[in-house]
Write a protein that binds this DNA or RNA. Structure first.
Length: 111
RNA sequence: UCAGUCGGCCGGACGGCCGCUCCCGCAUCGGCCGAAAGGCUGCGGGGGAGGAAAGUCCGGGCUCCAUCGACAUACGGUGCCGGAUAACGUCCGGCGGGGGCGACCCCAGGGACAGUGCCACAGAGAACGAACCGCCUUCUCCUCGGAGAAGGUAAGGGUGAAAAGGUGCGGUAAGAGCGCACCGCGUCUCCGGCGACGGAGACGGCAUGGUAAACCCCACCGGGAGCAAAACCGAAUAGGGACGGCAUCGCGAGAUGUUCGCCUUCGGCGAUAACAUCGCAGGACCAUGUCGGGUCCGCUGUCCGGGUAGGUUGCUCGAGGCCGCAUGCAAAUGCGGUCCCAGAGGAAUGGCCGUCACGUAUCGCGCGCAAGCGCGGUGCCCUACAGAACCCGGCUUACAGGCUGGCUGAUAUC
C-alpha cells in the first residue's frame, strides 16, 4: 500500500464516488493500471491548529493500518478527508465507521 | 510564618504490542532487479520537535538581481551616556525624571531663542504680555446707603490640563521681584567624571507657556527580493527553428455563348472537340448511413533550443552545545578539553493499551465549632500553550502545573 503524494492524484480522486462518516469522508477512484492500493489524507485548515490537524491525520493513518486490506478494492486510490470529531471519537468506533464506509462504496458502485 | 519582588529550571514517568522517517553494518558484497550508477526488500544497531518550534516585528549569514566609487536629494528607521556584539530597535553598566516604606519597577528620555501650525470646552484673558468679579486713590452727584467718572494695581475669587516663578518677611493708598532670605530658573567661572551628568561659587531680578505620538530641524543607519532564493537533470502536450519523405497543384455530372463537325428544312444533334463566363469542388475530424451544418488546412519523420510537471542538490558542523580556567561589576571575550545533537517534503518524530504520579470533581469514613486536613473508592483531563520546514542572534505573544535561589517588608520566638 502506497501513499498518495501528487496533487494531480488528489484532484482525480476528489471527483470520484464518496462516502461520509462522522469523523471523515472517504473519496475513491479506480485506476486503469494494476499498481497497488494508494491512499492519501486531507485535513484542511478549518479543522484547527497545526497540532490538531497532525493528530487527526495520524489517527486516520492508524485506522487504515489496522484495517484489513480486503475491504478495499485492488488498484484503486482512496483519500480520507478528516473532520474535527476525529480528534475525540473512540478509536474502535471509528474503525467500524471506516469499514461501513467501504461497504457503502462497494454497494453504490459495483463492478 | 505571611505578604511581596527579581531571576533560574522542568514541563508527565515506566512498560507492552503495532508502525513512520533518516543514518550505519551484514566478510570472495544478505536476497531480487540492473551493464553500471543505483533501486526495492530482509535482519541487526543507532538518532528523531519546542521553550516558545508560534507571530513574522527587528538584526545577520546564504542565494539571485542591480551596482565603478563618492556625495547630494527623496523615502524609511533609530534617538540620554559608555560598553558588548557579525549586527540590531537586543543585552550589560551608568545618568536624569517618575512611582513604591522597601527589595524593585516604569520612561518614544535629541532640538520649542531655524521656521510654520495648533491649544477644544470652560473662562475676562490661551500669547504683539491679559483684567470679569474685586482691592485702592482722587473727583463729581446724592435720598449719606451708595452710584458714576478718571487713574493705580495683579494680592484674593472664579475657569481650566496649563493663567506669565513659588513660600515667607518687609514694604505700600492698595499692590507688585519693588526689596530681602530660601527654593526654582538662566548666564558665567571653577572642581569631579571618558561621557550623559553631578557639586560649589558669583551674577541676573524672572526674561524663554505647552505640544515635535503636528509639520519640521539635527545626528546616525539603510540597494532590492527571498530556500516557492538558487543550481543541475528533464517526460507528455501545444507552440518555435532546421533537415528529409509522401501527397496535391483540380472537375466536367450542369447551363449559356462563340468556333468547329454531322444530319432530313429558317431546324436539330454532338459521353467525337476547343475556349470563355457562371457553377461545383479536395482531404481530415465532429461514432456510423441519408439530409443539413460546423471546424481545420497539407500530412508525417528525425534533430535542435527555450521550458512546464516531476526529480536531484541547496539541507544541516554551526557567530554550535557542555565542562574547566583566566579577564571583566556585568553583557561578554579569550584559552584548553570534550561531544555530534531531527532533516520531513500532501510534510516522519506516532497510534492503541496497562501501571504509577500529579491535578480536578464527587462519595464514604475519621479528626475539627468551622475553614479545612488525612485515608480509601469512582469518574474526568489521561495532560497547559502548542508541531521543525534554509540556518543563527533577539523581541513580542500563549502557557495547566511543579521545583528552586537571591533580596525586601511585617509578625512571632530565641
Amino acid at each position: 500500500m502506497d501513499r498518495l503524494r501528487q496533487r494531480a492524484d488528489f484532484l482525480a480522486v476528489a471527483n470520484g464516488p464518496r462516502a461520509s462518516g462522522p469523523a471523515f469522508v472517504v473519496q475513491s477512484c479506480r485506476r486503469t493500471d494494476d499498481g497497488p492500493i494508494r491512499i492519501g489524507f486531507t485535513v484542511t485548515k478549518k479543522n484547527g491548529t497545526a497540532t490538531e490537524r497532525n493528530r487527526i491525520r495520524r489517527r486516520l493513518r492508524e485506522l487504515v493500518k489496522r484495517l484489513d486490506a480486503v475491504s478495499m478494492r485492488p488498484h484503486s486510490d482512496y483519500v480520507l478527508v478528516g473532520r474535527r470529531t476525529a480528534l475525540s471519537r473512540d478509536f474502535a468506533v471509528m474503525l467500524d465507521d471506516l469499514r461501513a464506509a467501504f461497504r457503502r462504496l462497494d454497494r453504490q458502485h459495483p463492478e
